[in-house]
Design a binder for these strands. Structure first.
Lengths: 344, 344
DNA sequence: CGCGCGCATGTTGACGTCAACATCGACGCG
DNA sequence: CGCGTCGATGTTGACGTCAACATGCGCGCG
């Protein structure tokens, strides 16, 4: 049903010149029609449109980019699409960019060694992009000490303060405080913390804010347990936490680790929320169906994506960046994994 | 520490001509150095390299694409990065493409209405891509009845047989059989099925294969329950399933729905695996930490990604496609959500 | 000693588009 | 009736790169 492949080797599609010839006009007129300029006679426009359809003409974006000095494309650097947050943010970025007429160039970093990151940035220089959004945790970036190609606009989605680049992220501080105070309000004497990896600024912020909240309320600050965001690490930390019967409330730095923690508690015969209350962070889809359904801090990734695209586009057009970090607020979703401590 | 922004308005980076001038050679020689041609004197090459570094020269990919008639870029059409499988496959595609020297152009479809899909495909025609991988469930595509711009190579990641395009996907048939036979082998009289949405070919394949397996073993085929891949839909179907005390074994079409099902069973006081055995599909990270840890069918997304990129690149270069579908095998991961039926 | 060959390097033009400028006809107004 | 204006359309060249075709030099060999 398809076929129609001319045996010749030419694969290039029709160009403006071809359309122009068929419609009996100049290339410039075709260009005007293609770009919806209004100063074209209606009858001429129709004729050109018809010729375009007949030939299946598509403007050549390389030529356009070359001519205009602008690609209308944004590079997004990511490392593994395993984490829920990264994935969601990427989705939001892609949608926001599309709406604004930009396309997305996905640049995966194969591993987080210095050379791989440097490499990816190098590749990026040759990529057809007007600007870059960095979606990898910034500590890594810091350690690698790489500089991006100059003259490229950049926005970082993370919570580091150590950057020259504009920053957009969830308000980690507010989210962690929300979670911690919720547990305190329920009557828990203090709140334990299962944190993310020390290489993550986001994890760092959540940890500090949890600590500060406890201090502000005059509570004791228990030792921190660290995970790496994975459910497995949450399970492992949970096994250790479960041995301490002082623990009545835990704020976990993300939902996946919270899932591992829940499992560890079950295996030890501890009831949630009766024996231990648990709060997560992210509000991934599944959180509502954990057992019990997880109380957690909801991030609005859509907003993070939108804001970072807006910041980048502004930077691309102005040529300079505003350094004020953007912090997107969170919301506490209360489900059934939290309750007042048993008895009192 | 940065600054150095010339107040002039020109933003364009240095071109070959600039490098050539600085190094005292012709543009062509710079081109040869940039492309690692060997017929350049070592001393000259060093001089050119030095000039490149000094100026921060980056080849202009638009000009290169225009000149070569090739973008070295692959478009990937996706609809929402919510499902585990899509995300993982995208990641694998991005990595495989990068290794082969192609970049990834992510094209989100805003919703699955016909107009949105058509629209996305239209946009794609103007995109700087040599080929396209379609990562949305193909039924939708079918319904929309859109044709892609001609002359563009396409690979579909899904299990439809109704396409002119080459297809790469997990071997749904084999996976579903694996799951069903595992439950039968344990001694269950028959196996219930909680399927994915009827609009998905993948879900369809899994359902048919489950059914065929039961028939092959001479078992009764119970009515199917349908979900939409989400944990919530699994929960809802689970509530209905739990009322039928005939049910001792369920094969669920993905892990997320299995999670919802587990929750529903718990709430009804049914023990897994003692009262009901459950098998999922996907083997997402969290599956090992569900309660109980979920027996499931592992898909190797890496392989699906790699194969689809390879197929697409082959098609781009040959100009024609081989229509033999590629089916990537699965593996059954046995955990603790399955056991022989209680007593007998 | 002269011819030819191989190698490093230079010159030219074309890829497709679009801004800037040029052209041309129609129409209005003094 | 002539001049100015405006709107539609055409012509030219440049964006940056690279293949194809010069050019020019040194060296080996008869």
């Amino acid at each position: 049903m398809s076929a129609e492949v001319s045996p010749g080797k030419r694969r290039r599609g029709p160009s403006m010149a071809d359309v122009a010839r068929l419609a009996g006009v100049s290339g410039q007129t075709v260009s005007r029609v293609a770009n919806d300029r209004h100063n074209v006679d209606a009858e001429t426009r129709d004729r050109v449109r018809a010729a375009m359809n007949q030939l299946g003409y598509r403007p050549n974006s390389a030529a356009r980019a070359l001519r205009n000095g602008e690609y209308r494309s944004i590079g997004v650097i990511v490392f593994e699409l395993h984490s829920f947050g990264t994935t969601r943010t990427l989705d939001a970025i892609a949608i926001a960019a599309t709406i604004r007429g930009y396309s997305i160039n996905l640049v995966p970093v194969l591993d987080v060694t210095q050379s791989a990151v440097t490499n990816a940035f190098g590749r990026l220089g040759e990529q057809a992009v007007d600007g870059v959004i960095i979606l990898i945790e910034a500590h890594t970036l810091d350690a690698a000490g790489v500089r991006l190609p100059e003259g490229l606009s950049v926005v970082v989605v993370d919570s580091s303060a150590h950057y020259d680049y504009p920053i957009v992220d969830t308000d980690q501080r507010q989210g962690a405080r929300l979670a911690t105070e919720h547990l305190l309000d329920l009557g828990h004497k203090t709140v334990w913390h299962l944190g993310g990896p020390p290489t993550s600024f986001a994890a760092d912020r959540r940890r500090r804010s949890w600590e500060q909240t406890l201090i502000d309320h005059g509570r004791e600050v228990p030792p921190v347990y660290d995970g790496d965001w994975s459910a497995t690490s949450g399970y492992e930390a949970g096994c250790r936490l479960a041995e301490d019967d002082q623990v009545t409330a835990v704020f976990v730095a993300n939902d996946q680790m919270a899932l591992g923690l829940l499992r560890a508690l079950y295996e030890r015969g501890l009831a949630v929320p009766d024996d231990v209350s648990v709060v997560g962070f992210d509000d991934m889809e599944e959180a509502a169906h954990f057992w019990p359904p997880l109380t957690t801090v909801r991030q609005t990734f859509t907003e993070v994506g939108r804001q970072s695209v807006d910041a980048l586009i502004a930077e691309i057009h102005s040529g300079e960046h505003h350094n004020a970090p953007v912090a997107v607020p969170t919301e506490l979703i209360i489900r059934r994994s939290t309750a007042p401590p048993r008895s009192v």
